[in-house]
């Protein structure tokens, strides 16, 4: 086993430092596999606390245009789940790596096979956006056997009783979705967000992280006292596309996650 630290341990460490976790997403194999591996390393070196790697899928129904397109480009370049897993180890990433994959590529790989290979190559968590808790019992059991933390999502449309069930099942962190909708940058956070986060925080002993729509330092600053982690995806993909200075962007994001006493 290679992963030096699990997602849960990372959150514990950051709590002690009074910081919110900076979780950065990138699509595996975008803009191509070699570049993508460099980007993953850059994310780590520039201040990410956790890296979320998106496994490209032909039909990403939960994603907005930015991530859809990156997924499409990645597939056109011949990226596969196998090739992503196979190239991770040599990067020697020292922070937790989490996969975000739609169910079908995982099924094609084989449930136990993929969990085993993830574990062997230093991946510590897994998010499956089209696997609700009703369908997940086998994955919940198997992921424990292979030491992979299986992370579930809660959305503003999730009723209170159901939120509790999801909190119970989710390991590593609870992925809170800020909006009704797909992934993508949004200028404004919805009015109900504070109440939504408070309610989940109150009920959860597991750390909670907020994703979908976050893309500025300002947003991070306004969120850092309310959540244990922020997840930034589409903004990273856009920065890669526009060849922005990733290091600087991420360093600023990381700065914003540090709570003022």
């Amino acid at each position: 086993m290679l992963n030096p630290i699990s997602v849960s341990e990372k959150f514990q460490e950051l709590k002690e430092k009074n910081e919110t976790a900076l979780i950065l997403y990138t699509t595996g194999g975008f803009p191509n596999l070699a570049e993508s591996l460099k980007i993953i390393k850059t994310l780590e070196e520039s201040g990410a606390d956790i890296i979320e790697i998106g496994i490209p899928f032909s039909d990403p129904i939960a994603d907005g245009p930015t991530i859809q397109e990156s997924s499409h480009v990645s597939l056109m370049k011949g990226t596969t789940l196998k090739r992503i897993i196979g190239n991770l180890k040599k990067l020697e990433i020292k922070i937790p790596v989490v996969f975000m994959s739609y169910l079908n590529p995982l099924l094609a790989y084989g449930k136990e096979e993929v969990l085993l290979d993830m574990n062997k190559n230093g991946v510590s968590g897994l998010i499956i956006p089209d696997l609700p808790i009703e369908e997940a019992s086998e994955w919940i059991e198997l992921s424990k056997d292979y030491n992979i933390e299986l992370i579930f999502l809660i959305t503003p449309a999730t009723p209170p009783k159901r939120r509790k069930k999801i909190i119970q099942e989710s390991r590593g962190f609870v992925y809170c979705v800020s909006v009704l909708g797909t992934t993508g940058i949004r200028n404004k956070m919805p009015a109900y967000l504070n109440k939504f986060l408070k309610d989940i925080k109150k009920n959860s002993e597991t750390p909670i992280a907020l994703g979908f729509g976050i893309g500025t330092q300002k947003q991070i600053e306004s969120l850092r006292d309310k959540v244990d982690g922020v997840i930034i995806g589409s903004r990273i993909i856009e920065a890669i596309k526009n060849e922005e200075n990733l290091k600087e962007l991420i360093a600023n994001f990381k700065e914003a996650t540090k709570r003022q006493k």
């Binding site: 129904i61 939960a62 169910l103 956006p129 089209d130 696997l131 609700p132 009703e134 369908e135 579930f152 999502l153 809660i154 959305t155 503003p156 449309a157 999730t158 009723p159 159901r162 999801i166 979705v177 009704l180 909708g181």
Partner: peptide
């Protein structure tokens, strides 16, 4: 649960479950 033998089910994003 919406299954015809091993087929069917509800494999959708959480936001649609309710």
């Amino acid at each position: 649960k919406g299954y015809f033998g091993r087929f069917g089910g509800r494999f959708v994003p959480e936001v649609l479950m309710n």
